[in-house]
Nucleic acid binder design. Structure first.
Lengths: 254, 254
DNA sequence: CGGGTGTTTGACATTGCTCAACATACGTGG
DNA sequence: CCACGTATGTTGAGCAATGTCAAACACCCG
């Protein structure tokens, strides 16, 4: 009964999930593709903040699609330091690469409580064979994620702490905007200064100082879980932020 | 005539190309797959050292398979600094991600004179549809490359200069061994200290100092275009080098 | 021989880290 | 309600790692 009632509304309902918004920015999706995508969301699960979903070295675990909440993928070094490789926001895949390599080379931790749907390799390949355009969209999304890791590498390798922070916050803002969770005004951000430090290769103390200078110079304010872009234009200039790889006004493939 | 004479030797000949060695480490390849792979190598081209193959921002260029020589992919910042994201050695793809995004987010420069074969998206997709196992192998190789960029990120974000250099040289050695161009004794290496600096996010002067300390502590020597692992075991321990993602004694998929 | 590229070393400047102290908010048990 | 513990944010002082500038040297190649 419920299913029948919902059927005609599937298109509308899906319009709003983060994954659909994101993939829709890459490839114009048909009704069939939307329902195949919908069918992927079978096994819904939730995880609490702070307890690892995936452990470095773990074999053959599943992949997930993040529905709500934030997570991060990271690696721990022997001396206890950690480097956060990337944050995941709603609409992102978790552990897609690990599934292919049959072995996770990193850990994944929920930063907030999160909702996910579990996806097996079989589910994915099945969905892809039904709708090749979907495969294209997912592959593009994966490529974009990789491009972001590259940009992150450049942040850490060649930008000074303040530019690094600025660039990072802008990128996060752009990603969140893509799924409707942010704008050029700012976004809600559950990250602690410790998390920022581990992502940017800085100490937590230095993160604090850098945030202060950025705030005092009137470009961004990060306070009480909100990032506010006080002057988006000056900030982008300061950070040399160039969002080509994220910036689409419409789908690339129609 | 020549073609006929070569035909029965294709299997043997291919056994030796770097790409075949590399993919063979992921997936056991049949004769058919080997010849499909061989057929990809149609448009052979050469490029001289130092002149960019691909420019940041360039649209819709081709991808290449590197046959011989070394290249690097990098990004330039406005202030002239550059960050090298990755080096490419024989058997690696050049610009595979750019092809998918229809836009290159980085530049690629040959470090030595190089030989490549040009591959179009159509060629690739065609090859994949003929032999799905080949697609798997290429996808795995791409995942491994991504894992290496991640490891590089960790190098830069959280390892001190000396450990960073050590880790980087070990990784390069492992990659080269996979295609028969290196061993635990060492490898031929055409990189200048400037290139190392741009890859590791250090200054060239500091690279020089770090190389000296590593040499004086008897772990690695980099001199006259050769990297010599003076004590492979001490070096791996020093660098916390864990080659899980590169280390296969045989194909993962038979 | 001269110019270009890469390496080596020294002196000094700066960035960002460490340690330490204190502030603030929140939850929990008494 | 208070007392306490824990997690996070803030600030200062001193220091270590790394960058910058400058100079000399080695080597190759025309």
């Amino acid at each position: 009964m419920l299913g029948v009632w919902l059927a005609p509304k599937i298109g509308q309902r899906l319009e709003k999930t983060p994954l659909v918004r994101k993939l829709g920015a890459f490839v114009a999706l048909s009704g069939t593709e939307l329902s195949v995508l919908d069918a992927l969301h079978k096994r819904r699960r939730t995880f609490v903040a702070g307890r690892d979903l995936v452990h470095q070295g773990q074999l053959d675990q599943a992949a997930y699609i993040l529905i709500s909440g934030w997570a991060c993928s990271y690696k721990i070094l022997e001396d206890g330091q950690r480097q956060i490789v990337d944050f995941q926001i709603p609409g992102d895949f978790l552990g897609l690469r690990s599934v292919l390599l049959h072995m996770s080379d990193h850990s994944i931790e929920p930063i907030t409580d999160i909702e996910v749907t579990e996806v097996t390799v079989a589910d994915l390949l099945d969905a892809f064979s039904q709708t090749p355009r979907l495969a294209t969209a997912v592959f593009w999304a994966a490529s974009r994620d990789e491009a972001m890791v590259v940009e992150h590498l450049i942040d850490i390798g060649r930008r000074a702490a303040a530019e690094r922070m600025a660039h990072f916050l802008l990128e996060l803002g752009a990603r969140l905007s893509l799924v409707g969770l942010g704008s050029k005004a700012g976004f809600a951000c559950p990250l602690s200064q410790y998390l920022l430090a581990d992502a940017l290769g800085l100490s937590a103390v230095h993160v604090n100082r850098v945030l202060r200078t950025l705030r005092e110079s009137g470009m961004v304010t990060f306070r009480d879980g909100f990032v506010t872009f006080d002057s988006y234009s000056r900030l982008t200039e300061f950070a040399e932020f160039d969002p080509v790889y994220l910036d689409h006004t419409g789908p690339l493939l129609r």
